[in-house]
Write a protein that binds this DNA or RNA. Structure first.
Lengths: 336, 336
DNA sequence: TTGTAAGCGTTATCAA
DNA sequence: TTGATAACGCTTACAA
């Protein structure tokens, strides 16, 4: 199967290549007749345009890149990432863009990969999912004036195109809710502090306690968003008897589940003795028993908005992006 | 920031463009000195190769496409897909390939999108995840001699490059195991019959009952791999009292969970009254109570193998692909 | 070991 | 309304 090119079509139809090209782009200054003829010939010959050749001259790929700065294993274990991809994929599909996926083993690679994608002209813009601060990468992108959108928050700079939820406020609100429900001593269970959303949630937690209660904040950090880590951490904490709490706010569903199990295994019951709250609203957590109370993030929508924003930046000279903050929802189930 | 091209480097280094090109491909018939000079100049000027231009002449994109023939919503709700993507992404990353993701709303589109990806020369090969039979697409790919690998099984043709598990055997084995454990009346809970893996699992189930027991097969079909569907289906079944069973084998974890809950809500206990078994081993199912017994598929590995096979097909003239069948594992937990 | 020149399949500019 | 012709940035014979 040889490739049918625009020249082949031109020759067969007895017109010039540029005419064929114009027919493809449906130029209005071409006669109906010629159009019909050329289209017929294209069909007969089985012509399909070559995206690569077109990109070379138009200087655009109609492709956006998604770079995920986590080891794939970690990245995909958490449904957050599939949700984001789902949202992005739906929009790119609809807007006739392609999606190039790039997951890097670590940090360093994130930067390299992103820059490579850009400099090699494979994509017109990128969506970043680095939840830690990677200021240098952002700086470079800004400096190159390369179109990008960040999912999450950029710690160091203002005015970066982002899609995020208001972690500080959201956490504040759930703590407030717990206090109103009568919980006196609320602990927090956080992932690694280097994640910006962990910092933000911790801040909202502290703020709420500071303003609305008179208890000292108690934040447990664990090394990874894993069930086992959370389980061990919370269990050790309970065993040490060092401090008491009647509610625990986990910064992620998976570790909320670990905490839940630790509490139960220690002999307490949820929510009678200790309440548990998570973050994300992974589909699965509504099916466990007791069903998890959690903050639902509009994950898919975050992906959609990021893709929409990037595509708009790409096509609208005057649009430079914005900071979109999406609302979340408290899903009260059985663990409170 | 203007693009630095090979010509700019050539001019600055005082050599010809082809020399620069040769340095880039590290040709061995170029002097050490020239190489050093050219590399230095590239660095100084900040040269990066243009992948598009290179592709146009080499006729390869070093990109593979992943086409998912499900509505994105459905596709991503099931961790199966993220696992597959994870596996593929890891391999493409390592082998310096790019991954182009394309999720289509339905069937028809799957075919169109795949063909477009190919004819437009955006990718060198594709990985298909259509779990229903889409014979026409396969036929076209074969006819075009276009490199592809199928994850799943092709119902109609032999000799198609695939990665899969042996669903018939795997189901046979778990049914056998249940019978040996003393369960007398084992029901099956299947998704839509159009999915080939459902057909295969049903066949393994029937075969086992036929050879090892003297009970009639009892297969419940539901319209979708959703918790609610399974929940309602099983609950209705139990209420109708039409037929009894002491074990239920679900062809997916999510619907196993639905069945589990239905059984419990009806007032039976698991596994004392009825055993429940799932398929996949979604990370979450080990954390519910009672922890789900399930068949673990090597999902990530399936993605990896598919990517490896495709890349091998792409680079080895003599290799046409094969049918890889990966082993599964029974994970016995608390629901049996 | 290096340079010249053709060509990959398009689109875009300028004439006609 | 159409056709030449020149890019786009690279690789690769073929020469030197």
């Amino acid at each position: 199967m040889k490739n049918v090119t625009i020249k082949d079509v031109a020759k067969a139809a007895g017109v010039s290549p540029s005419t064929v090209s114009r027919v493809i782009s449906d130029s209005h200054r071409i006669s109906k007749e010629t159009k019909r003829l050329v289209r017929k010939t294209m069909k007969e010959l089985g012509y399909h345009h070559n995206a690569i050749a077109r990109s070379l001259v138009t200087q655009r790929t109609d492709t956006i890149g998604l770079v995920m700065a986590r080891p794939t294993r970690e990245a995909f274990a958490n449904p957050f990432f599939s949700g984001i991809i789902q949202g992005i994929a739906a929009v790119t599909q609809k807007k006739h863009y392609s999606l190039l996926l790039s997951s890097t083993a670590d940090y360093r690679e994130e930067q390299e990969e992103t820059i490579k994608l850009i400099r090699n002209r494979r994509v017109d813009g990128v969506i970043l999912m680095s939840s830690r601060s990677n200021d240098e990468l952002i700086n470079q992108l800004v400096q190159y004036r390369f179109p990008f959108v960040l999912i999450g928050r950029c710690a160091e700079q203002e005015g970066i195109p982002t899609v995020n939820n208001d972690n500080i406020k959201d956490t504040y609100n759930i703590v407030k809710f717990l206090l109103e429900r009568g919980y006196k001593k609320i602990a927090a269970l956080s992932g690694p502090e280097e994640y910006i959303f962990c910092q933000d949630r911790a801040q909202g937690y502290r703020k709420a306690l500071d303003e609305l209660a008179d208890t000292e904040p108690l934040i447990m950090f664990i090394d990874d968003f894993k069930f086992e880590e959370a389980y061990q951490g919370v269990l050790n904490y309970l065993k040490s008897g060092q401090m008491r709490f009647d509610a625990i706010l986990a910064f992620d569903d998976m570790i909320a589940l670990g905490a839940l199990r630790a509490i139960q295994d220690y002999g307490f019951s949820v929510p009678e003795d200790i309440a548990v709250v998570g973050f994300n609203d992974d589909p699965m957590v509504s099916y466990i028993k007791p069903a998890l109370t959690t903050i639902r993030l509009p994950i898919i929508k975050m992906g959609e908005e990021a893709a929409k924003m990037l595509i708009k930046i790409l096509n609208d000279e005057n649009y430079k992006g914005e900071e979109i903050i999406l609302p979340t929802e408290m899903i009260i189930r059985e663990t409170v």
